[in-house]
């Protein structure tokens, strides 16, 4: 059984089909890239999978459970974490605190425990700090733990979002344009981190425009165009797919 099965997923915004009958499945341990021109529906797809939007039709099975209709926080609790195309850092918190929020579903102190922190609560708190620090170390931000998150440069904020998302210890990680705005050194670092996560058993779906990176790391690609799935296949298959080339990769070449 595949980890994620998306079938006939549809979302319309007042008559405009942002995602139209899209189906594909993702196996455990895969790195899948979703590509397509701007406005193809990639981010909408992520928002549907994480409960930010409710779809007009179709279903999403995660580990065999239909997650459509579930609220975003419940879906996160099932083990789907994500980053955002437009950074959604908690600017009012330190770097470490950002990642500590990522441990939310893995800890259980309630309001009463928060008011009266007995030793069990304190132990859990220490554990949260330790785990969060490990995730920061993984992305190379451990030395910035106590810095206000809004003081980090853009590239590092992206890394922070990744470490915050993986603090949830997700089975499935959705990365929305992780390489956008990164310089080549940072991109190399990102690729290393993605491989490291894959080796730890995390399944990854990423939306990305940086074709070089995508073709390098993705096991399979899903190509979207105007909300429709145009093609699906290995990087080699996609690079040789005439439709994809026409619609996306090399339209200008054909015209010239």
């Amino acid at each position: 059984m595949s980890l994620l099965e998306i079938s006939n997923l549809t979302k319309s915004f007042g008559g405009i089909l942002a995602v139209n009958e899209v189906s594909f499945s993702v196996n455990n341990g895969e790195i899948i890239a979703v590509i397509g021109p701007n406005g193809a529906g990639k981010t909408t797809l992520f928002n549907l999978m994480t409960g930010i939007y409710q779809p007009t039709g179709g279903q999403v099975l995660f580990n065999g459970n239909n997650i459509i209709g579930m609220s975003a926080h419940r879906i996160a609790g099932l083990g789907i974490a994500r980053t955002f195309q437009n950074l959604q850092i908690f600017n009012n918190m330190t770097v470490l605190e950002n990642v500590m929020v990522g441990r939310h579903t893995k800890s259980k102190t309630g309001l009463l425990g928060a008011i009266f922190p007995i030793s069990r609560v304190q132990r859990e708190e220490r554990e949260i700090v330790e785990k969060a620090m490990k995730k920061l170390t993984l992305v190379g931000l451990a030395n910035k733990a106590m810095v206000g998150a809004d003081n980090l440069p853009y590239g590092r904020q992206k890394m922070l979002e990744i470490s915050r998302a993986i603090a949830l210890e997700p089975e499935l990680l959705l990365l929305d344009e992780p390489a956008a705005g990164l310089n080549s050194t940072e991109t190399r670092k990102l690729v290393k981190i993605i491989y490291k996560l894959r080796d730890q058993g995390v399944t990854i779906i990423l939306v990305e425009h940086d074709m070089e990176t995508v073709m390098e790391i993705a096991d399979r690609l899903v190509v979207l165009n105007f909300g429709n799935k145009l093609a699906e296949g290995t990087p080699v298959e996609i690079q040789n797919n005439q439709e994809v080339i026409a619609a996306y990769l090399g339209e200008e070449d054909l015209v010239c």
Partner: peptide, 17 residues
Amino acid sequence: RALRSVHGSEFAAQSLG
């Protein structure tokens, strides 16, 4: 932290559970 995260970004807070 959960409360402050809501203040920082409600979307991100929800996506973290």
